[in-house]
């Protein structure tokens, strides 16, 4: 199981990882259609931490012993033993936000549209990790560990 790591010194703070993360989780997966025409405007599942000049992206660590899974009252979060991903099922989620309270990285995000959370799924079902492959400065890498 690997994780995405940031290289803060080469991050320019362009927020393109956030933009492409949102596209990856849109219906059309098309940057223009997604932002202009989709009813539910796409939302990113990672955050660019910023205290200028410092910037770096941080996304879910898919922890070995995930606190979010421990806290989830509905069973909407679990760690998939095969892929190592910490998976979220929005249909099961009730938006109690226990996971927001317990994720040590602050990487569970409140969906502003409905009582539900959103989080990184390591681009499940897609052929690349969108944040990593679209960073123009290669400030994000995926490392096996």
């Amino acid at each position: 199981m690997g994780r995405i790591k940031a290289k803060p010194e080469v991050c320019m703070g362009c927020h393109l990882c956030e933009v492409w993360c949102a596209v990856a989780h849109s219906k059309s997966k098309h940057i223009i259609k997604a932002f202009l025409y989709e009813d539910d405007k796409p939302l990113p599942r990672l955050v660019v931490e910023e205290k200028l000049p410092l910037t770096f992206a941080l996304q879910c660590r898919h922890c070995a012993e995930p606190d979010c899974v421990t806290a989830c009252i509905s069973g909407a979060l679990w760690k998939d033993p095969e892929s190592g991903r910490v998976v979220h099922d929005p249909n099961q989620c009730v938006g109690c936000y226990s996971c927001v309270l317990t994720c040590p990285y602050g990487n569970v995000f409140i969906n502003p549209r409905k009582r539900e959370i959103i989080k990184c799924d390591l681009c499940a079902g897609l052929d690349t990790l969108y944040c990593v492959s679209h960073c123009p400065n290669e400030a994000l890498v995926y490392e096996d560990c």
Partner: peptide, 23 residues
């Protein structure tokens, strides 16, 4: 967020999550 922490503390807490010393 983590950006608001003093530098030494921040990178200590995120030691497995970032790669430093690349430039």
């Amino acid at each position: 967020g983590y950006a608001d922490l003093p530098e030494t503390l921040r990178w200590k807490l995120l030691q497995d999550d970032v790669i430093l010393g690349v430039v």
